[in-house]
């Protein structure tokens, strides 16, 4: 029965390479082959900040074949901690696995949108990641984590909404002096790590109007999922 299923037309392309193998899982994970590119491929990434009052640090986008900028339940890399606590994406975009990258020059204000471009000769095996910090948080970030773009044809676009994550590297005290965004103007990156030290989804900010009297944040800084809308379009 498994063989019958795999012989469905949708997998016909894979059968050439994989029929006869009884390891169906591996076969299914194999990306569809991408025809070799004759000329330059251009991707346009449009990001919209959906929050009420969380400016997003300059957005970084990257094309890579391996790796992930973050994994739920794993400790943040030093590069991710730097982004999530201080908004500096240069460490992540400078990772060895990153083949092509681009960064915005300015933060993305609530309600605003931005476009970034990437050019490459091939999309084969490529994944796209996008990363940015909610700057009025202790260590909150959002983005896309290794989205497969290898099958994107010319003119195609995909839209996604992003979730809020917590790097787990700094306690969410919301205290004066700990938040780098305009709500506080406090400290960004600090190499000390909180006990949790695992990436999780963000629980949201509390604020001084919702029961955390020592918070520098107020109701205007609260957010809920999703945080951004991101559209990736293959222009050519």
């Amino acid at each position: 029965m498994k063989a019958l299923k795999l012989c469905a037309p949708v997998f016909a392309g894979l059968l050439l390479a994989g029929c006869g193998s009884d390891n169906n899982d591996v076969m299914l994970e194999t990306p569809m082959p991408t025809p070799p590119a004759a000329e330059e491929i251009m991707l346009k990434v449009t990001a919209v900040n959906l929050t009420n009052g969380q400016p997003l640090s300059p957005i970084g986008i990257a094309l890579h074949k391996e790796g992930q900028f973050w994994q739920i339940g794993e400790a943040a890399s030093a590069e991710l901690e730097t982004l999530a606590e201080g908004g500096d994406n240069s460490g992540l975009l400078g990772l060895d696995v990153v083949m092509m990258s681009s960064s915005a020059d300015t933060p993305l204000a609530p309600g605003a949108s931005q476009e970034l471009m990437l050019t490459t000769e091939s999309l084969e095996d490529y994944k796209l990641s996008l990363i940015t910090m909610m700057v009025n948080t202790n260590d909150g970030f959002t983005g896309l984590n290794a989205m497969d773009v290898s099958n994107l044809a010319e003119g195609d676009s995909i839209s996604m909404r992003t979730h809020a994550y917590d790097a787990g590297t700094e306690e969410n005290t919301e205290a004066q002096g700990t938040i780098p965004g305009p709500a506080d103007g406090g400290e960004g990156f600090n190499s000390a790590r909180e006990d949790m030290d695992k990436v999780a989804m963000h629980p949201g900010v509390v604020g001084n109007e919702d029961g955390l009297s020592s918070s520098v944040l107020d109701s205007t800084h609260k957010f809920d999922n999703p945080l951004m809308m991101v559209t990736i379009t293959r222009m050519k």
């Binding site: 919301e174 989804m201 629980p203 949201g204 509390v206 029961g211």
Partner: peptide, 25 residues
């Protein structure tokens, strides 16, 4: 969860910086 920032007293026994969440969970 609402939680509060008081270890003793307050309305809730939960901590508002720890025991809240946003969907999805």
């Amino acid at each position: 969860n609402l939680g509060d920032d008081e270890a003793t007293g307050g309305k809730s026994d939960l901590h508002n910086t720890v025991h809240r969440w946003l969907n999805p969970v």
